[in-house]
Structure formats: structure tokens, C-alpha cells
Design a protein around this nucleic acid. Sequence first.
DNA 1: TCCATGAGTTTCACATATTGAAACTTGGTT
DNA 2: AACCAAGTTTCAATATGTGAAACTCATGGA
Lengths: 269, 269
Amino acid sequence: MADGSVKHSEPRSGTVGKALSVLDEVAAFGRPVRFGELLDQSPYPKATLYRLLQTLTSEGMLAYDAERQTYSAGIRLVRLAHAAWAQASLAPIARPHLDILSAATGETVHLAQLDSAQVLYVDKRNAKDPLPMYSSAGKVGPAYCTGVGKAMLAFLPPHQQNAAIAQQSFHRFTEHTLASAHDLVMELNEIKQRGHAFDREEHEPGIICIAVPVKTAAQHVLGAISVTSSIRRTSISELETHLPHISETAAAIAAEAVDWRFPDDINRD
Amino acid sequence: MADGSVKHSEPRSGTVGKALSVLDEVAAFGRPVRFGELLDQSPYPKATLYRLLQTLTSEGMLAYDAERQTYSAGIRLVRLAHAAWAQASLAPIARPHLDILSAATGETVHLAQLDSAQVLYVDKRNAKDPLPMYSSAGKVGPAYCTGVGKAMLAFLPPHQQNAAIAQQSFHRFTEHTLASAHDLVMELNEIKQRGHAFDREEHEPGIICIAVPVKTAAQHVLGAISVTSSIRRTSISELETHLPHISETAAAIAAEAVDWRFPDDINRD
DNA sequence: TCCATGAGTTTCACATATTGAAACTTGGTT
DNA sequence: AACCAAGTTTCAATATGTGAAACTCATGGA
């Protein structure tokens, strides 16, 4: 994972913030992890980290295996996971639409949402003939150099957009990466005009995509969807032929999301 | 939802515990919820609840809709959800096995894990001809009067078993509910001998099931699976004919879980 | 118009939970 | 037996959190 996105968690103020950052670290390991490993990553002193882990464990957010002395995600987090999934993720709503889009295009399809100023992939459909690539459901990626990321940033209200841009880290992944706030802003303006975004090998060499925001009638950005492929198989202009279908899909997802989650948002301005 | 399981969250000591309990409450609503609604449920004074919500919101665990003044699960929780799901849930491992069992029996199949002293349904397959019933993936239910619950409790090491029994609330859902710790202990002993548990309309009238624990060679209880039906369609003894298949399924899930998550647990004692 | 109401937010003196350096325990190694 | 690393506990200092009450602001009667 060539990472140009997030620094390793800095200390936070409140106790709650610290505890949550520890939770993140444990979750990020993706496997049972020892105290020492966490300590290395952690900005907190030994005793503090220790107590935070104890608290989280006794709260059921982490599970501690006494024999191995390892911490991992706890069952309470699984319970929250269901609720979060049903409430805050577009994935359950989008699923059937993505299936259709995926079948129609035969390419990889992504559904993403903004998490802080990063992109969280909440669902993915593989191409008929899958390509090796970084993204997968549950992973986060950079916003400034992915199709879905730029599609969402472009349609954010100015204040939020600025805040999000300020948090980007502008690592140059490829020679095409837009590696400065200035370049990004230019690009976002174009995207806003055009209505859709491209990724021209900005994150991974050879990988290109076309992306469209999922937004409500009131212009709230809920997420973005993209159709992704490889330059070895297709081109930007060819991907663009899918645009009507992608836009329809985004509109359908937005409409359903509004119906379910904001029943009277329909004509809000 | 006839609830005989959990009292509405009592105040906790640490700040972290309080914050997490608030998170639970918001998640439990399953929809955007107003401050006032939470305040009614909450054991915390207005100002405290308010600050906890602010903290959680600024941490991204909750999302606040300023126009509606509502809180809901945040995107950061979705990210954790993925990690938790992959790490702590048996569902991804069990999925193909449950598919097979479900197809073979034609009945409703549940996969559950223990969350505190309650049962968390982490996956479910509906019968060919689905029955209306309480459970569904992501929901919690009582342990003392469900097949999966009793199957897990029965095979817990004594200390944990006692702790879990002490936390049961013994609401009498039906005339068959085992509504005391004493009755439950007797039943658990039988189950431990027999190797599998039944639910004889103890939770919902007309609903019966047979359940088997998912446990490692080292006797760690990871979860339980059950095959559920209705007295109008079948009987306990008929359900019991599925036992070999259910046990095989449980064993297969346990074996895979051990391989993936505790690579050297295999012969631990 | 004006006051009453209630939801949501802020304040501030007080109480407490959190902090982290350092001491201690534990279990494995030489 | 002595050592070492990893994990756990202690304790006084203090940053954090607490919650009653005061405040703000929108709403809707009178």
C-alpha cells in the first residue's frame, strides 16, 4: 500500500477522541495485535495506551485474547457495524443499481463516500475480467487523485470544499497526479462545469476511470460512483460513452436515499 | 418488539463508556434522531449528553444534520464496521457454509455470536417459504431462551457461564420460556451432555429450532448456528434429523475460523 | 405585538477521571 | 541465578469532565 494519504494519528484532546483513535488503530491492523505493536504506532505513553485498551475491551469494543495477549475488534463493534451500515452507508440502497451498471458496462464499479477528507469505498463490483487494483470495499483512499474523490469534492459547498482540500496530502503517486492544491482547484472547477470527473492514471499507473457524484436535488453530496478500467483495455473517451448510464444510476441512488433517509428533503433548497 | 432483554442503559463511569453508550443509543434508533429524543432515553443530564454528542460528531462517529437537527451514524463508523465485520464476525467465513445448509434444509438458518450476555445475529438465511419472526442480521436477542443462545452458554467455561447467566433478565416470553437461572442451568447441563440445544417455543410462540455451538478444538465458543421452523410445519424430532448436517457445518466454520484467525490454535489446550 | 413555551446551547465553580514517570511483576532466555 | 523485555500497577498533579442553572432563539398563542 503506497500511502500518500494519512499521517499516523496525532494525539487528540478528549479522552473519547483518544479512545476512538486507538480503536481505529486496532481495526486498521486487520488482525489480532499485541500491546507492543500498538505502542510503537501510538502517540500515547505506555500507561495511557494500556488504560485505553482496557477501557475499550471492558466496553466490548475490543476483544482481548489473554493467551496470545492480542487485541482485536470486539463484538460490540460488529453490532454497531450493522446499524452504521444500514443507516450511513449508501451500499444497501445502491446494491441493485450497481449490479445493473456493472453488468451493463462489464467494468469495475465503485461506490464511495467521503470520510473526513478521504474516500471510503463502501461497495465495489469487479469487472468481468478483474484488474489488480488498490481499492476494495472498506478501504480508504486519497480524495485528490481518484475519480470518486474529485467528483465529490467538486460539488461540495465552498466552505467544506476548502476544508477538505486543506486536509489533502498531495503525494505524487504517478506522473499524472495533481500534486498541489492549486492544480486540484482548477480541476474541480472543470469537473463542476462538466458534471463528471476522470481519473487519468492519477492514483495508479494504467488505471483510468470516470466518476459521477451522487447528490440530492438540494445538492447535498452523498457519495460518488465510478466505472474503472485500464488503458490497456480502453480509453477515457470510450469510458465516457457509459456516462448516461452512470448518471442515471447515480440519480436513481440519490432518489432512493432521499426517500428513505430524508423523506422531506426532496425539494429543499 | 416485546423486549425482555436489556434495561435502558444505566450511567457508566468513564467518559469513554458514556460516549459509547450514547453511540449505541443513536445507532439503535436506526434513523436520524433528535437531541430531545435521545435525552428522554438517556441517563445523562442535558449538558453532558449534549457534549458527548458534540464530541462524537466532531470525531466523525456520528453525523449531524444541522437543518433537521438530527444525529445519525457517521461515516467513520462505517469504516470501522468493515474492519469489525472482517475481523470479529464469523459471517464472512460462514457464508458459503450457511448457503449450503440453507439449501439442504430449506429452513431458516441463523448464525449468532455472544455480545455481552446477549445473542447477536450476524447472519441469516430465510426459509424457502419464510416465516415471520423477530430475528434478523444485526439484531440482538436474549440468550436464555433462544436455541443459539443456549447452545453458546452451555459450552462456556464455568466462570464466563456464571457471569453470563447473572446478566440474563428472564422475561417470560411464552409459557415455555425458562424464566429462572435455576431452570436455565439445568437445561444448559443437558445441552452440554447432548451436544445441541433446542428452542421449544421459548421465545416466540410456534417457533422451534435446533442449534449447535461453533467451537474450536480447544473448546472456545465462537458462535452458534441454528435451523429454525414452525410447529405448523415440522417438529423438534424432525428438525433433529438435520443434526448431522448442522454439526458438520458448525465444524467446518470453526475449522476455517481457526485457520484464518488463530493460525496456531489448532491443538491448543 | 408581546409574552409563554420548549428545544437547544453555553457558562462556570466544582469534582473527578485521566495522566505518565517510574516502580513493579511476570515469564522467558542465557 | 541473573538478566531482559513485555506488560501491569501506583500515585500525586492536573487536565478534563460535570451538571444546575442561566441563556438564546424560534414558535405559536393570546
